[in-house]
């Protein structure tokens, strides 16, 4: 090995801190390298302006969108079909508003679930007694839906997608998640991807298998342990207040339940079916040893 090669090797190993003790001593004592050392030390403190990762990623999303736009147009025929069925329902509920504002409103009644496809192919499974509305105009640029009740969303990747509710907003980047909103509940569960949940001043970012619930105006994050059961045809509970279970029963079946005060604090663990009213009532009340009978759609307690 020539002398020059030795030098070369030494220099690189100096940078990677790979010099032996002896070499380091020799290197440190050799004034030949003092200037280079000082210059490299200075270079080490040089910087390049940092990249704004959030802004960069949204720019990337729109670049991706541009290249994808041709592929997304293919689903136009399905979209027309969906639009037709939406129009019928929308006319029933909002009448002229639909034509004037391009607003689409879908509302499910007691016991009725619906699967809705949005203009970009994203899917919303709407649970019973829930509503979904969105503006058809400029959908691809402004993907925003309003939801009350419970829904499972499977969002196609693309720009931002926002769910507005009366308790807060949920923003997503291509993902699968569930929202449960009522006057006294705001719950979001993320099954795939990433969502940002905002309520008032607070915000929580959820990754897959994380959920959050608004309790005493606090957003609490938790890990999802159980399956999302309303999608598979039943509701299940663990130590839930009976009054809450009774409210849910009335969303799935056209019945009136006036729970006597003496039962409201009881806790229910178990599940009820969405398809069989008699069996659902039995699973809740019989297991809790509450005697009841049904008269003209009203549950009477003994």
């Amino acid at each position: 090995m020539s002398k020059k090669n030795d030098h070369t090797d030494l220099l690189a190993r100096w940078l990677s801190n790979d010099l032996t003790k002896e070499e380091k001593k020799h290197f440190d004592e050799n004034p030949e390298f003092n200037d280079l050392k000082a210059v490299v030390e200075d270079i080490d403190s040089w910087k390049i302006p940092p990249l704004d990762l959030d802004a960069g990623f949204s720019e990337l999303q729109s670049k991706k969108e541009e290249t994808n736009s041709t592929a997304k147009m293919i689903s136009m025929t399905t979209w027309f079909r969906v639009a037709a069925s939406i129009a019928l329902i929308a006319v029933t509920y909002v009448g002229w508003d639909y034509f004037l504002n391009n607003e689409v409103l879908i509302q499910t009644t007691i016991g009725e679930k619906q699967e809705v496809e949005l203009p970009d192919g994203s899917k919303v499974n709407l649970d019973v007694s829930s509503s979904l509305s969105y503006a058809k105009r400029n959908w691809l640029k402004n993907r925003e839906v309003e939801i009350f009740g419970q829904a499972f969303l499977d969002v196609k990747s693309g720009g931002s997608f926002v769910v507005q509710t009366n308790s807060g907003t949920v923003s997503v980047l291509g993902t699968r998640f569930n929202v449960n909103i009522s006057t006294d509940a705001f719950e979001v569960r993320c099954y795939e991807g990433k969502v940002l949940v905002e309520s008032g001043e607070q915000n929580v970012t959820l990754l897959a298998n994380e959920g959050t619930e608004l309790l005493n105006s606090q957003l609490n994050k938790y890990l999802i342990k159980e399956q999302l059961d309303w999608m598979s045809g039943f509701n299940s509970y663990s130590q839930a207040p009976l009054s809450e279970v009774v409210l849910d029963l009335q969303k799935y079946y056209p019945i009136e339940i006036n729970l006597p005060d003496r039962f409201t604090d009881m806790r229910f663990t178990g599940r009820f079916s969405h398809t069989d009213e008699a069996s659902a009532l039995r699973s809740v009340f019989a297991t809790m040893e509450i005697r009841y009978s049904v008269l003209n759609g009203i549950v009477v307690f003994e």
Binding site: D9, L36, V39
Partner: peptide, 20 residues
């Protein structure tokens, strides 16, 4: 990588001497 960086350093070293 080691070779490229070493060469860069030798180039710099030469440049520093020249500038001085």
């Amino acid at each position: 990588v080691e070779k490229r960086i070493s060469k860069a350093l030798l180039n710099l070293k030469g440049k520093i001497e020249e500038l001085k």
